[in-house]
């Protein structure tokens, strides 16, 4: 029995995965830009766009995950969504995706209840978003059927490149920050 939904699910899975990654790129770039002074947009707008693109990306990620699991031609079950590197098929690449999902859930959850988690804990967990991004790129490149096509490769390379460049700028700017520093000499003598 040929099931006409099979290729549809497959296309949905690939498309939603790609667009989700695009949205994540946008979110990462906006997140990096949020430290900037002299904005083109008011900073609260940058913040809102960052959150909006992240949440939309998460929404599409849900579509992606559901499509992949429901697809009878893909041998993944619900368990593989959470527990990495246990899949029957393409264990490594799936695993990267699984890890990314796990971390992303943590990042988003802590951001929603940011005030309860406390600023320091929130910041540390939020920094793992970079890992999420790297894992997602890796997952997409490794597992993607399209990854060798020129358009997909170009898209991935541009996204990753932009993210890296932005990160570099941010790190350099953070180093000579707003002039605040802990007076390093105020240490308690042993």
């Amino acid at each position: 029995m040929t099931d006409l939904t099979e290729p549809v699910l497959w296309y949905v899975a690939r498309a939603s995965g790609l667009v989700s990654l695009l949205l994540l790129t946008v979110s990462v770039l906006l997140g990096i830009a949020s430290g900037a002074r002299g904005p083109v947009l008011p900073r609260f707008v940058t913040q809102r766009l960052h959150r909006a693109s992240a949440l939309t990306g998460v929404l599409l990620l849900v579509v992606h995950v559901v499509a992949v699991v429901v697809d009878p031609y893909v041998s993944l079950n619900w368990y593989d969504v959470w527990w990495p590197f246990a899949a029957d098929d393409q264990r490594l690449w799936t695993g990267l995706g699984t890890l990314a999902v796990d971390l992303l859930v943590l990042v988003v959850a802590t951001s929603i209840v940011r005030h309860r988690v406390g600023a320091r804990a929130w910041r540390r967990i939020h920094l793992t978003a970079y890992a999420v991004y790297a894992l997602s790129i890796g997952h997409g490149v490794g597992i993607g059927t399209d990854s060798l096509t020129p358009w997909a490769a170009a898209m991935t390379a541009t996204s990753a490149g932009l993210a890296l460049a932005a990160l570099g700028v941010r790190v350099r700017r953070d180093r000579d920050r707003r002039g605040k520093r802990y007076n390093a000499e105020l240490e308690v003598p042993t």
Binding site: R178, G179, K180, R181, Y182, N183, L186
Partner: peptide, 15 residues
Amino acid sequence: DESAGQCGPCVHGLA
């Protein structure tokens, strides 16, 4: 210089 360096207005203002 003796500012603890934690608070922006103090660090910048006193300087």
